Simulated scan of single mutants.
Amino acid sequence: MINTATNLGIGDPHFNVAVYIAKAPPMPEYQDLTNLTPLNKGQINTINQACGNGWRKVFNVYAKVLFALPSEHYSFAKQAATWQIYRDELLLQANSKTALLFSPPQLNGNNTLHIIAGRTHAKNLINQGLLNITLDWLDDEFAINEQHKVIVCPYFDYRQLSNIKIARLSQLVANCAKSG
């Protein structure tokens, strides 16, 4: 049972960009999380080696998304020369302002961007009463609630969230930033 009052996952406790996915990496240290824990340098590679290509894609796409965000609102692309360096040196670490959460979004009116990876995950959160907002479904893959800065996009996988769709996600983020 997920503790819905706490952000459970990996990343910076002071995040301003959160990505929500349904399941933690299948490693013992991530199965019974009770809080949000920053990763240390090299831990993404450890997860990739232990859990395979699916997790490598999640981290790669997350870094690519951060690099595509509008620079007038987010400075991730200014912190490293490439998205690969950002992934390896900063992503989900202390002071990165990023989080990968396995718990439902905590929408408390702050300026946090909430990205729910996967339509199925978003609909499950809604059906379980864990996401109580109205989403404007733009098509079968993308939905948005600008007031709460929540965006639903395809799962973080190259085939589902291609570069073209990452660009679309970036535009939706820009729309949220303008409305907030």
Rank of each mutant, 00 (worst) to 15 (best):
M1S: 11
I2Y: 02
N3Y: 03
A5R: 14
T6C: 03
T6Q: 04
T6F: 04
N7K: 07
N7L: 07
L8W: 05
G9W: 01
G11V: 10
D12M: 04
N16P: 00
A18V: 06
A22N: 07
A22Q: 12
K23W: 13
K23T: 15
A24E: 00
P26R: 11
M27K: 01
M27T: 12
M27D: 12
P28G: 11
Y30F: 11
D32A: 00
T34H: 12
N35F: 10
L36G: 07
L39A: 05
N40Y: 15
G42Y: 02
I44C: 12
N45K: 12
N48Y: 08
N48H: 14
A50Y: 10
C51Y: 07
G52R: 13
G52V: 14
W55Y: 14
W55N: 01
W55H: 07
R56C: 13
F59C: 08
F59E: 01
F59V: 00
V61I: 15
V61C: 00
V61K: 09
V61D: 11
Y62I: 09
A63N: 07
K64Q: 08
K64L: 07
L66A: 04
F67H: 09
A68T: 12
E72Q: 13
H73D: 04
Y74P: 10
Y74V: 01
S75N: 14
F76D: 01
F76P: 08
Y86L: 13
D88T: 06
D88S: 09
E89F: 04
K97P: 07
A99Y: 02
A99R: 01
L100C: 03
L101V: 04
F102C: 01
S103H: 02
G109V: 02
N111F: 05
L113V: 03
H114Y: 12
I115C: 13
I116A: 11
G118A: 03
A122V: 14
A122Q: 13
I126Q: 07
N127I: 13
N127F: 10
N132M: 15
N132C: 15
I133D: 11
L135G: 00
D136M: 15
L138F: 13
E141P: 03
I144E: 00
N145F: 11
E146Q: 00
Q147R: 05
K149L: 05
K149Y: 07
I151L: 08
C153W: 08
Y155R: 02
F156M: 12
Y158C: 03
Y158T: 14
Q160R: 05
N163Q: 13
K165G: 02
A167W: 10
S170Q: 00
Q171K: 14
V173K: 04
V173Q: 10
S179R: 12
